[in-house]
């Protein structure tokens, strides 16, 4: 196991650099640093992942060069159309699975937990993430919720 060696190495390096310890406040939960502020992005960087909370929308990946290449994303929220989360939250709230106060417009932990509960009740895999069958059972059309390549979206709206 290398970790004790690694930690010891770090300790020596830190001592040599004479770093001052700055932490004083408690952990304020995910999305903030130990000092209760968001982790700082690097200088000169805008829209850096640092300002994304734990339930961030996830990076959307530019589709490949193929005309019908689908959109890719690192998180389920990244594949949703604008206002799709609100539509899902509205349906969950109308069924009593999500409190009205929790309609945040974000795929946040309460929404994920409500989705999981809904999926469990409907004998679907309780992943807490939206998929075609889950949104259909919620009374929504997958085409309204999920992004597709521009070509396919144009065809769908025709």
């Amino acid at each position: 196991m290398r970790s004790p060696t690694l930690i010891l190495g770090l300790l020596l390096a830190a001592t040599a650099l004479g770093c001052a310890h700055t932490h004083t406040a408690g952990d304020r939960g995910s999305g903030t640093t130990a000092e209760g502020r968001p982790e700082s992005p690097a200088k000169g960087e805008k829209g850096n992942s640092a300002d994304r909370p734990a339930h961030h929308a996830g990076a959307t990946v530019t589709p490949g060069t193929r005309a019908d290449a689908p959109p890719l994303a690192t998180s389920p929220a990244g594949l949703l159309k604008p206002d799709a989360v609100e539509a899902i939250q509205e349906k969950l709230a109308s069924r009593g699975d999500l409190s009205d106060k929790r309609e945040s417009g974000k795929l946040d932990p309460p929404t994920r937990e409500a989705l999981r509960e809904f999926q469990r009740k409907n004998n679907l895999p309780a992943t807490g993430m939206p998929d075609d069958l889950t949104v259909q059972k919620l009374g929504l059309e997958p085409g309204q919720i999920f992004r597709a390549t521009t070509k396919n979206q144009n065809e769908a709206t025709r």
């Binding site: 310890h21 995910s30 982790e39 700082s40 994304r52």
Partner: peptide, 14 residues
């Protein structure tokens, strides 16, 4: 450890 604590989440990833 010495400058700024990391959040327990996806912030700053990658």
């Amino acid at each position: 450890a010495f400058v700024q604590g990391l959040t327990s989440g996806f912030a700053n990833l990658p």
